[in-house]
Nucleic acid binder design. Structure first.
Length: 491
DNA sequence: ATAGGGTTAG
């Protein structure tokens, strides 16, 4: 086989890779084997084959497990690669973890480990990213042990990736201790830890970390600033927020072209109640900064959210229209923002219209979160029966997990919780009991539900029921959390 | 031929 031929094969494999065509990959593989023995000597061709296979497998198996047949194909291909050189393996792990196939990346790492391929910082970084993507604490802990044994904890790259993994699995204490024990630190690992504090709404911890940066001889970059704006929003620190805005203008080159920063800035001003300023930042978003006049969906969503939370309902309607006119297609999150805006401002019929338009005009299937939103909308307007009807008509089973959401799945506690909340207000015990039962089926540890239910019981003098609830709470070991709210209810 | 951190809703 000539190198020209090899190039052609590589080109075709790339096509398989792009189109995720398993059968095409299989026949190309067979053809290559029949044509010559070139495959066993061509690393790049083997690598391409592995990637094409991996992508087609996951296409069929939704990224969780692969069949033994497929696993064997991969393993055999792995075995034809010289294990004394980690380079090609690292390339494979990197590709897989960056193209949405984390579990296969981890399979590859396992193969490397059990076949004596040297595990270097590149291998660990890629697989830590993969483990973070599927939120695998177990795999992470295992890798952490290996990393420590091999001395890779001293690498800022590996350290940052490890911190990120712990952050994404909500193990903030582990993240913190990795950070504290790092011999060398830079902005990236600070940002990794900081983003964990921000995501977990641990505003003060985040702020303290940023304050420590000066002492460590580090400057904030745009990632840090972005988090800092969210801290300002969380603590409603408008003055600090203005300072961050000022230093963005002074210090960050073309910050206006950065959607992340603009979005956080709009959100910050909005949560601090300075709607005009948020609008000002939003209105100038199309100018400069590489944008060709069309604004990002996320940018629109943040502005819609700002108007909704501040009760500017007319602006929400207007903005949504403008967004469509500008040619920006709404996504599911835009509708969450818009429908909850209707909910805040008590515009039930418009909220329902948007909900219907979402499916009818834009072909977007509502998630459980959308249903929660509409249930909340109906309940706030006192339409409890309609809310119950809507829940019964949902295409989901109650008590199941919805994996389509960003945080990897929320159950439908919020759905029943919204209904229960409304029942407390209206004193509807019968429906409230049903809602409380369903909510606790989905999440038996949810203290808020116990409190709501006992509030409802107390309001109508059902003291026996409260007594039963109290036993249940003690049984499930939730007494400590419930604390003062419980005492308030009983006394 | 290879590596680490960020935005919107609730």
């Amino acid at each position: 086989m000539s190198s020209h031929q090899a190039k052609r094969f590589k080109y075709h494999l790339n096509q398989c890779y792009q189109s995720k065509n398993l059968n095409l990959t299989k026949s190309l593989h067979a053809y290559i084997l029949k044509t010559s023995h070139f495959l066993s000597t061509s690393l790049t061709l083997t690598t391409s084959l592995i990637l094409s296979y991996s992508l087609s497998f996951d296409h069929h198996h939704h990224n969780t497990t692969i069949s033994t047949t497929h696993f064997n194909i991969l393993t055999n291909l792995f075995k034809s690669i010289d294990t004394s050189n980690p380079f090609p393996f690292n390339t494979i792990v990197s590709h897989l973890s960056h193209h949405g196939h984390p579990s296969l990346a981890l399979h590859t790492l396992s193969f490397m480990h059990s076949n004596g391929v040297v595990l270097d910082s590149y291998a660990f970084c890629s697989s830590l990213t993969a483990a973070a993507a599927i939120r695998s604490v177990g795999f992470g802990k295992m890798m952490h042990a290996h990393i420590e044994k091999l001395g890779w904890l001293s690498s800022v790259y590996v350290g940052s990736a490890l911190i990120d993994l712990y952050v994404k699995t909500s193990a903030m204490n582990d993240a913190r201790s990795v950070f504290d024990e790092m011999p060398v630190r830079n902005v990236v690992c600070v940002n990794a830890l900081f983003s964990g504090f921000v995501e977990g709404r641990m505003w003060e911890d985040g702020l303290n970390l940023v304050r420590r940066m000066r002492g460590l001889g580090m400057e904030c970059d745009r990632f840090t600033m972005c988090g800092l704006l969210r801290v300002c929003a969380g603590l409603a620190k408008i003055e600090l927020g203005r300072q961050v805005h000022g230093s963005l203008i002074r210090r960050v080159e073309d910050f206006g072209g950065d959607v992340f920063l603009r979005t956080s800035l709009i959100d910050m001003y909005g949560r601090c109640g300075v709607v005009e300023k948020a609008r000002h930042v939003f209105d100038h978003a199309r100018i400069g900064g590489g944008g060709e006049g069309k604004r990002d969906v996320v940018l629109w969503t943040s502005m819609l959210g700002v108007c909704g939370r501040n009760g500017h309902f007319e602006d929400v309607i207007e903005l949504f229209k403008e967004m469509l006119m500008e040619g920006t297609k709404p996504d599911k999150i835009v509708f969450l923002a818009v429908i909850s805006a209707c909910s805040y401002t008590g515009n039930v019929s418009q909220g329902l219209q948007y909900f219907e338009s979402m499916v009818g005009d834009f072909g977007l299937n509502p998630d459980q979160e959308h249903y929660s939103c509409v249930v909340d909308l109906l309940c706030r307007a006192g339409e409890l029966e309609r809310a119950l009807d809507l829940i019964s008509s949902m295409p989901f089973k109650t008590g199941t997990v919805d994996n389509s959401t960003r945080n990897g799945g929320t159950n439908n506690t919020s759905l029943w919780g919204a209904l229960l909340n409304a029942c407390v207000d209206s004193g509807n015990v019968e429906l409230g009991k049903l809602a409380a039962e369903r909510a606790l089926e989905a999440d038996p540890q949810n203290v808020g539900i116990y409190v709501l239910w006992s509030n409802l019981c107390a309001s109508v003098g059902m003291w026996d029921e409260i007594e039963k609830l109290r036993d249940l709470i003690r049984e499930r070991g939730l007494m400590k959390d419930v604390g003062c709210s419980w005492l308030e209810v009983v006394s």
